[in-house]
């Protein structure tokens, strides 16, 4: 880690001013990604602006039944907050299945939205990596890429997105609220996570100095029965091979009336399964239709010999999850 200067911001204005006024600076929240990557010399800001003191740890009701989550609320607190458990159990589960209790006590919700990939070629600080060093290439394309993405990839990057809770949030159509040097704005979550395309280094639309201050989760009645299931090699403390967030309502006729489906571990971004949703809504909730929907979602999957299993794995995981929710 290179020498850094440190500023502990006492207010949002101060924090935004400090970062936007310094070209080589970064916010420091829970630090669980930032400090790790600083030590690996993958990111190299020279000014760290500590935002842990900011009064952004709240959870409060919005609209009719939605929740606003302060950006500095810790994952462990959000996971166990009554209104999250009741209204979005799948989100609570996603939070609790992420990392470890120590990390969840540290990691903030805003920071989680900025979590970086675990791609070994990104993290090593040396290999060709378009995400770390634009234009240098992508060693993962032909490297060891078992954990890499099969959806949303490009010729320039196949790094998978590591977050669990972000999978829930894309399914819930959350909105990211920010304050930056140019004022406040709101960003729909699916516009927040940018697929790699030609610019893998640009992961979200935040301007320098723009701080996430809250995440709005709208009222989603169907999410009261939502679930998050995470499949991985070991039973705990591991990033997902494949994870599935689902919230589904089947009407009296046995047709899928509402469905929110999102996937982790398979996409370059937290993956909302729009195609599967479209394929199922209005159709009978049967295993055959679930399978067809899963096929549709992965129709454009791009795989390598090492991660091709994820397609089969994910399809089966989707079918199982929807079948269990139905039964």
């Amino acid at each position: 880690m290179r020498p850094v200067t440190f500023f502990r911001a006492g207010s949002i204005d101060e924090a935004v001013a400090a970062v936007s006024g310094h070209p080589d600076s970064a916010f420091l929240a829970g630090g669980t990604t930032e400090i790790d990557l600083l030590r690996l010399n993958v990111v190299q800001p020279t000014l760290l602006v500590d935002v842990n003191d900011l009064p952004l740890t709240y959870l409060e009701d919005i609209d009719d039944g939605g929740v606003r989550i302060g950006a500095m609320a810790r994952m462990s607190d959000v996971a166990r907050a009554q209104r999250i458990v009741e209204r979005y159990p799948g989100m609570s589960q996603a939070l609790l299945l992420g990392a470890s209790e120590q990390l969840r006590n540290m990691a903030s919700m805003g920071g989680n939205m900025c979590q970086r990939t675990r791609c070994a070629y990104f993290r090593d600080g040396q290999s060709p990596c378009n995400k770390r060093e634009p234009g240098s290439g992508c060693a993962a394309l032909t490297g060891v890429n078992r954990g890499h993405a099969v959806l949303g990839t490009s010729d320039h990057c196949i790094a998978s997105h590591p977050s669990d809770v972000a999978v829930a949030l894309v399914a819930l159509d959350a909105v990211i609220r920010t304050i930056g040097p140019d004022g406040t704005r709101t960003i729909p979550i699916e516009s927040f996570f940018l697929p790699p395309d030609d610019t893998p280094s640009v992961e979200h639309p935040l301007a320098h100095g723009e701080l996430i201050v809250a995440i709005d989760v709208p009222a989603v009645p169907v999410a009261r029965t939502s679930r998050y299931v995470k499949h991985r090699d070991r039973v705990s403390y591991e990033f997902a091979l494949v994870s599935v967030f689902s919230a589904m309502r089947v009407d009296d006729a046995g047709n899928v009336a509402e469905l929110r489906l999102a996937l982790g571990g398979v996409g370059t971004v937290p993956w909302r399964a729009h195609r599967a949703e479209e394929a199922l809504i209005g159709r009978p909730a049967t295993p055959e239709n679930f399978a067809a929907a899963a096929d549709a979602e992965f129709a454009d999957a791009r795989t390598t010999p090492m991660n091709a299993f994820k397609v089969t794995f994910a399809k089966r995981a989707i079918v199982r999850e929807l079948s269990e929710v139905t039964s």
């Binding site: 675990r118 070994a120 090699d233 070991r234 705990s236 403390y237 591991e238 990033f239």
Partner: peptide, 11 residues
């Protein structure tokens, strides 16, 4: 130790 997997308590 995030990716080279050894057992954790839950295993």
């Amino acid at each position: 130790l995030g990716e080279y997997l050894v057992p954790v308590h839950a295993d």
